[in-house]
């Protein structure tokens, strides 16, 4: 372990001027955003079109009474209950290539936090192809339980990959809080590594 030599106060100061884009406010996005807010990130830009449902509560950072609310509104509220310091910009829409390039333009890092594989491909191809200098942190593979040792991290140019890169979601392999939280926090940890460099 390398000692990075920054106090929490210095970390917060460094992070206060930074902006992170979160594409998707489900299991990965909601948990990752909460962690980044806790450590003192200055600005979050969160995009999702969905509403909170009961089935989301097995892994996503929402509460029972928020069922039926727009995820971006509910997540903003939950974040600001933890920290008043972070500025949270929200967009209630379904992201496509144009939206990604427009909404995340001023971000220092983008977090890929979609659930569907085709959406993951869409954002990764858009960012790697159109803004190749933008760091993007993807969550690939976290369904099921146990199997801790398969979750890993690797860097492929400006693409940072967190996950087991094998476990797809299925009826008999659902995404659950522990492993989704692990990957979401691995993504947040990767964001810190990029921003505190």
């Amino acid at each position: 372990m390398n000692t990075q030599g920054l106090t929490f106060k210095q970390i917060r100061k460094k992070l206060s001027g930074k902006t992170v884009g979160i594409a998707g406010a489900g299991g990965l996005g909601s948990n990752c955003a909460i962690s980044l807010a806790r450590v003192g990130l200055g600005n979050l830009v969160i995009v999702d079109f969905d509403v909170v449902s009961e089935g989301n509560l097995n892994r996503q950072y929402y509460f029972h009474e928020q069922i039926g609310q727009k995820k971006v509104l509910a997540l903003k509220e939950n974040i600001q209950r933890i920290s008043k310091d972070v500025k949270v910009e929200i967009h209630d829409l379904k992201l496509g290539p144009d939206g990604i390039l427009r909404i995340f333009k001023a971000c220092d890092v983008i977090v890929e936090a979609f659930d569907r594989a085709d959406m993951k491909q869409m954002i990764l191809e858009t960012v790697l192809g159109e803004v190749p200098n933008m760091p993007i942190v993807a969550g690939l593979g976290m369904a099921g339980w146990g199997d801790n040792e398969s979750i890993h991290f690797r860097k492929e140019g400006m693409l940072y990959i967190c996950g087991d890169e094998k476990n797809e979601i299925a009826g008999d392999n659902p995404p659950l809080a522990p492993r989704v939280g692990m990957v979401a926090n691995m993504q947040a940890n990767t964001v810190l590594e990029i921003l505190l460099k």
Partner: peptide, 10 residues
């Protein structure tokens, strides 16, 4: 060469 599989879930 990098080949990255898009694994669903999030």
């Amino acid at each position: 060469v990098a080949v990255i599989h898009m694994i669903s879930g999030g």
